[in-house]
Design a protein around this nucleic acid. Structure first.
Lengths: 374, 374
DNA sequence: ATGAAAGCGCTAACAA
DNA sequence: TTGTTAGCGCTTTCAT
């Protein structure tokens, strides 16, 4: 094996404990001794054995981030932000890709496999209230991007209902009365799609418009191909929609491609809005109007909640159940709904932040730091 | 803590060793005893403590994949494929994002931080021959996507030079004589960009065309914004290029957006080709002509090489140095170079595989399983 | 086929 | 301030 504390201790002529103290700063060491130890450490190229340390401390310093897949840029970005936030707590993040499969998600909840993580951050696609209640594994868990009522599990998410309400409201404000939906009943949390749909319907009701089930076709996975396929189906209706709100940017980008291929002009013939604010949508032609969740806040809050749980602290608001953080979001109005003139500043390729601020139609809601409620 | 082998042994009325044998199948156990142990295991909900196991075995079962960032869809996809390939070896993959920073990459080579991984898969952006030679850490290492001559480190990559030769050759075959390059001197391995540039130049030479340094502006990071910025610079030339080959799909997609924003028609006024075959390029408008590396082969080969290294096997071809695998690639000809008619089949949104096969101009080279040479 | 005991490298408790 | 010792949970000799 490698160099152990004993080897270093022997070399420096001190005890193992002293070397450990130097390495961890766990107890004061005299300058002279410390220098000796430092030298021995360097000469032998000592590196702590994580397994031994973890075994002793009862903690691995690793947290697992469980998500559908990194192929979705939304989750890739989230993964980066979570990793950064976790690093500030001294944690390493292990990414576990479920592919959106229910059995894999349940496996994770059961704590299947071995015990490598001190805590779990789960972006659920299939599991809901029941599975969470049945959970026996004691590993601290935080839900990311999903809300499960009952206050049993700490969770962080945006206000999906309100966000969808704003997105549909924006499309209605453009004078489009037939607004389709792509992504209903899809993944990204059993509840998220449902809440977005509720927000969409509320917007129609508030505008005094009728609901048309044909405009809300069921959608499977949140991938570009699916968005394209569902849009083509919508275009075959007797009265096709004048606008479509997609519950995910990938769906929207797939739909955009299908619309353009069908010879439609976007937004003139069809306005399109998405969810997620992935970078692709800032460079597509036309650029994509989208709901931009405060991903940094999502990541930070999720890690903070998990930290509280792991450290055994109450976790936020007393002991009245698990805390639920609502991260902020903004509607970024871009070319796919208002055309090129309104969305672009001097530079046609607009950075993410300035786009929403410059656009007259931009609405924002929620706070970027996240509001806590339990 | 949790349930240990001792607890299970006590419950089942057997020794610790016997339980261990049942869990690992490391020695034959009588059917009767096994059943008893099985029951105790289930009743107590035993889960092996990875730290203890690792400490004892001297292996963690974790390999680290070090890459610039998951924000790049190319690396996100590679990460997924590597994770899948590693799972077949019973390994868990830890993803380490360097942000393309040199210090972070060097840190990884030094084995800084603690020793959590049995092996390292590195997609280098900055480190080259020297840093690899100076390396003292004994953790097995495999380079992914980069070639470093000298045969000291096992490596897997595509034939970048040839791929670039084909890409430029394709543009030349369309009658474009002024071909720009975006991505020269950029990251993604100090050598990869250089080799691609060499291939590009070779294609020009073989066509009897002059080199023009102004058509090869220096490029920093491989991001969309950079591609857009560099393309705008190219358009300001007295004689702007009629075609541009980008050494990364993100650069190409940024360039595409900038070209369209500038009022150019693509490919009529400007033909564009990329590298990497990320999904975005299959749904952009126009779809993106690109070099498609056999990513699955890259991932599989890299993991296999690492496995060989970790298991102490020679690693491939005798003991004449470290093996170097060349993964295959194909040039996928799409709308951004040949227009809409030639690239599309009956369905305007073409799946990744059929696109290249259907297109008359598609060329392929290399094998998908990868050729080994040392 | 099963059991007893040693020890992987580290840290926490106690002693000096 | 520094040293000694025990033990985290597991696998692995060596016995039986």
């Amino acid at each position: 094996m490698g160099v152990s504390l004993r080897d270093v201790a022997a070399r420096a002529g001190v005890s193992v404990k002293t070397v450990s103290n130097v390495v961890n700063g766990s107890a004061p060491v005299s300058p002279h001794t410390r220098e000796k130890v430092r030298r021995a450490l360097a000469e032998l190229g000592y590196r702590p054995n994580l397994s031994a340390r973890s075994l002793r401390r009862g903690r691995t310093g690793v947290v697992a981030l469980v998500l559908p897949g990194l192929d979705d840029p939304y989750f890739a970005e989230l993964a980066r932000l979570v990793t950064e936030a976790a690093a500030e707590h001294g944690w390493t993040v292990l990414i576990d890709q479920t592919g959106g499969r229910a059995d894999r998600e349940r496996q994770v909840l059961r704590g299947a496999g071995a015990q490598l993580a001190d805590g779990l951050l789960l972006c659920p696609v299939t599991v809901g209230r029941r599975e969470l209640a049945d959970r026996t594994d004691a590993t601290p868990l935080v839900l990311l991007g999903e809300r499960v009522p009952g206050g049993t599990v700490p969770q962080v998410a945006v206000d999906d209902r309100r966000a969808a309400y704003e997105a549909t409201g924006h499309l209605l404000s453009l004078g489009r009365t037939r607004v389709g939906v792509i992504g209903a009943r899809g993944p990204r949390g059993p509840g998220a799609a449902r809440r977005r749909l509720a927000g969409h319907r509320q917007a129609l009701r508030d505008a005094g418009l009728p609901q048309d089930a044909r405009l809300v076709p069921p959608t499977g996975t949140y991938r570009r191909a699916e968005g394209a396929a569902v849009l083509r189906r919508l275009l075959e209706l007797d009265e096709p929609p004048q606008a479509v709100v997609c519950f995910d940017d990938l769906l929207a980008l797939g739909a955009l491609r299908a619309a353009l291929s069908a010879g439609l002009r976007v937004p003139r013939d069809l306005a399109l809005a998405g969810f997620g604010d992935i970078e692709d949508g800032r460079y597509s032609t036309p650029t994509l109007t989208t709901v931009s969740p405060d991903k940094a806040a999502l990541a930070r809050s999720a890690v903070a909640l998990l930290a509280a749980r792991i450290d055994g602290a109450p976790g936020g608001s007393g002991d009245s159940g698990a805390p639920a953080v609502v991260a902020g979001h903004r509607l970024l109005v871009r070319e796919s709904t208002v055309g090129v003139a309104a969305a672009a500043g001097p530079d046609p390729v607009v950075p993410p932040q300035s786009s929403g601020a410059q656009s007259p139609g931009a609405q924002s809601s929620g706070s970027s730091t996240g509001a806590i409620s339990s």
